[in-house]
């Protein structure tokens, strides 16, 4: 969310661009270092279940989180640590979910990337790909029904999810209802191990937009400036009443599907191609070239972030784990209608 960055008195366009880039870069670096920490904790056997990283997708992801405002809706997916942080998630809540703290938003009932706070517009993903898009539609539909205007909702998916029925149904639904949905597709060239030619037969995923009557833009997902511009404009168009927006970003997943995945199926030529550029490095070089940040400032920032992450991990490791004897084991809100847990 940007207003914290831009709330200051009017500034020139260049100065504003600098502020946004610097803020975005900070979230990208935070996400990268947080991901690195989760990977290290995973290798050390400190995390139950899997770890899924967003390495190489931070520029796109942060552009979504930073383009949204308080009151907007965000349904991130597995590679969106940067977007989540930019949307307002705290490092503590991310760490709590990965480490299963009972104080985290999911209280150990769900873990890793399955986290959110629905009451704050931050929707917690279910695993089933494509399934969150229509939920965003529903929030936006209800907002319109309640005559709340000016808010938008963004959902993120990978190119693999574009093959699901849920993707099709939801994008069509958003088109029919003209909802202010921004659907971000990160084409990172592989869905787990499946290359794109087994996933879709059109030239570009952008071709799909016409079939739903939605606007579409493509963007180089390794270029922070381009992502900020394209995603920011899509969000602005949706906010102005322009209807659903599709954004297709081309990039490469610079990690395994999860940390368990050796990732050896990726075509080596892709690493050398422009798609294989590390968006974090690209952004950093740009900031330095523009003299928007000094090298010393980058080093200080990195140290600050590492300290923040280490403190969060240390704190969460002292927090109570969920206790099965305290857990209510209630799956529905209407207390007396829960069943099945009595000692029969």
């Amino acid at each position: 969310m940007l207003q914290t960055v831009l709330d200051a008195s009017p500034r020139t366009d260049a100065a504003a661009a600098q502020d946004v880039h610097v803020a975005a870069y900070r979230f990208m670096l935070l996400a990268r270092l947080l991901d690195d920490k989760f990977a290290a904790l995973y290798r050390a056997g400190k995390i139950h279940g899997g770890v899924f990283l967003g390495r190489g997708q931070e520029a796109l992801s942060v552009s979504v989180g930073i383009s949204l405002k308080k009151g907007d809706v965000f349904a991130p997916l597995i590679r969106d640590a940067a977007g989540r942080l930019a949307f307002g998630e705290t490092v503590l809540d991310a760490v709590r979910t990965y480490l299963g703290s009972s104080l985290g938003p999911m209280r150990g009932r769900d873990g890793n990337v399955h986290r959110g706070k629905p009451q704050e517009g931050y929707l917690p993903m279910v695993s089933h790909l494509g399934a969150m898009i229509s939920v965003v539609n529903g929030v936006l539909f209800a907002r319109r029904y309640k005559k709340i205007s000016g808010t938008v909702g963004a959902a993120c998916v990978g190119e693999g999810a574009t093959s699901t029925g849920a993707f099709h149904e939801a994008l069509n639904q958003a088109g029919v209802e003209k909802l202010p949905l921004i659907l971000i597709v990160a084409n990172n060239q592989y869905a787990y191990s499946t290359p794109t030619h087994f996933q879709f037969a059109c030239d570009s995923l952008a071709d799909k937009a016409a079939g739903y009557g939605v606007e579409v833009q493509t963007v180089d997902g390794t270029d922070l400036g381009a992502c900020l511009k394209v995603v920011g404009e899509a969000v602005a168009r949706a906010r102005r009443g322009g209807g659903p927006q599709l954004v297709v970003a081309e990039l490469l997943r610079l990690c395994g599907h999860g940390e368990h995945d050796p990732n050896d199926y990726i075509d080596p030529k892709l690493w050398e191609s422009p798609l294989g550029r590390d968006c974090l490095k690209v952004a950093e070089e740009y900031l330095l070239r523009q003299k928007w940040m000094a090298p010393s400032r980058v080093a200080i920032l990195r140290n600050e972030i590492i300290r923040e992450i280490e403190e969060a991990v240390a704190q969460v490791q002292r927090e109570p784990a969920p206790d099965p004897f305290v857990e209510q084991w209630h799956s529905i809100a209407t207390g007396h209608l829960n069943e099945g847990n009595e000692e029969r």
Partner: peptide, 21 residues
Amino acid sequence: DSPISEDAMVGLAVGAAIEGM
């Protein structure tokens, strides 16, 4: 009226319920 999209119909309902409907 909804489109013939049972998945998206229920998904929309869940989103609307989150929003208090």
